[in-house]
Amino acid sequence: MSGIMEPTGTEPAGQCPDRPSRTGTDLPDGQSRTGLPDGPAEPYGSVRHALLDAALEVFTARGYADAGLAEIATRSCLPLGSLFQHYGGKRGLYLALWEEFREEQERRTAATLAAERGGGVDDPIVLFVAGARAYLEGAWDNRRLARLFAEDDGPGGFDTLRRQWDRAWVRRNARLLEVDEKRRAGRVRVRVLTTVIGGAARELGDCADEAEARQIVDEVCGILTHLSTPPR
């Protein structure tokens, strides 16, 4: 996660509004997104989490263009100056949320692939589908963030940043599937597969409940298994 750390300042008087977690589900009391306790030992992280939680709430309610920094600061129960010192403004908050989502998805996928390989799996298609499942499950767990980045309402230059990450994603999938990127047919096949995963991740944000989300993940993984098989 990006952002300059500073010592925690004095919180404004009064009751702060409850803020939902940036993940799709509530976390147990005293637990952070990483499963570690949030306490006095992590004041900097607590400040950053408060700012990012508030920013996500305002971005999803108003859209990026109409989101106000004063409202974000008020919802975070921190002074406006703290927001600027940590993130430099609204764009910095948005990009920090994006980086957090991207890094969490990459960590989740990498952990799944490591576990599969550790269990003796070496089939490229099986590994690819396992990684895709991990990514889609992450999109469901972090659906508020996934929905935010699916919208065409972000800071200037974000579309370019997202396209760069998409290209890197395609290259990683090509290596995982052991596809020769010099062959146009292979590149196109991997790009189509990656696009299917991205489209499914966006659909998961609109699922009514976990049962529906799991049904979609299972169906998409079946499609990916079929499409990943090279033509004879």
Rank of each mutant, 00 (worst) to 15 (best):
M1K: 07
G3M: 03
I4G: 05
M5Q: 11
E6F: 06
P7G: 04
A13I: 10
G14P: 04
C16E: 13
P17S: 01
P20C: 11
P20V: 12
R22F: 00
R22M: 13
G24K: 05
T25P: 01
D26P: 07
D26F: 01
L27K: 12
L27T: 08
Q31P: 00
S32W: 02
R33E: 15
D38T: 10
A41R: 11
R48D: 14
D53F: 02
D53Q: 14
A54P: 02
A55V: 03
E57P: 01
A67W: 07
G68S: 15
L69D: 04
L69M: 15
S76D: 06
L78W: 07
L80P: 05
L80D: 11
G81A: 01
S82E: 15
L83W: 02
L83R: 02
L83A: 03
F84T: 12
F84I: 08
Q85H: 00
Y87L: 03
Y94R: 08
A96V: 07
L97P: 01
E99M: 07
E100D: 14
F101G: 01
E103G: 02
E104A: 13
R107K: 14
A110E: 15
A111W: 01
T112V: 12
A114V: 12
E116F: 15
R117D: 03
V121F: 00
D123C: 08
P124T: 09
I125C: 04
L127F: 11
L127H: 09
L127I: 12
L127P: 06
V129Q: 07
G131V: 11
A132L: 08
R133Q: 13
A134D: 12
Y135H: 15
L136A: 08
D141H: 04
D141V: 03
R143L: 06
R144Y: 12
A146S: 15
R147Q: 06
R147L: 05
L148G: 07
A150W: 00
E151I: 01
E151F: 00
D152N: 14
P155D: 09
G156T: 11
F158G: 04
D159Y: 07
Q164T: 11
V170A: 11
A174L: 01
E178V: 02
E178S: 04
V179M: 03
D180S: 08
K182N: 14
R184D: 13
A185N: 11
R191A: 15
R191H: 03
R191G: 05
T194M: 12
I197F: 05
G198E: 14
A200V: 09
A200D: 00
A208R: 15
E210H: 04
A211W: 01
R214Q: 15
R214K: 08
Q215I: 00
I216W: 00
V217T: 10
E219V: 06
V220F: 06
C221L: 03
C221M: 02
G222L: 07
G222H: 08
I223Y: 10
H226M: 12
S228T: 05
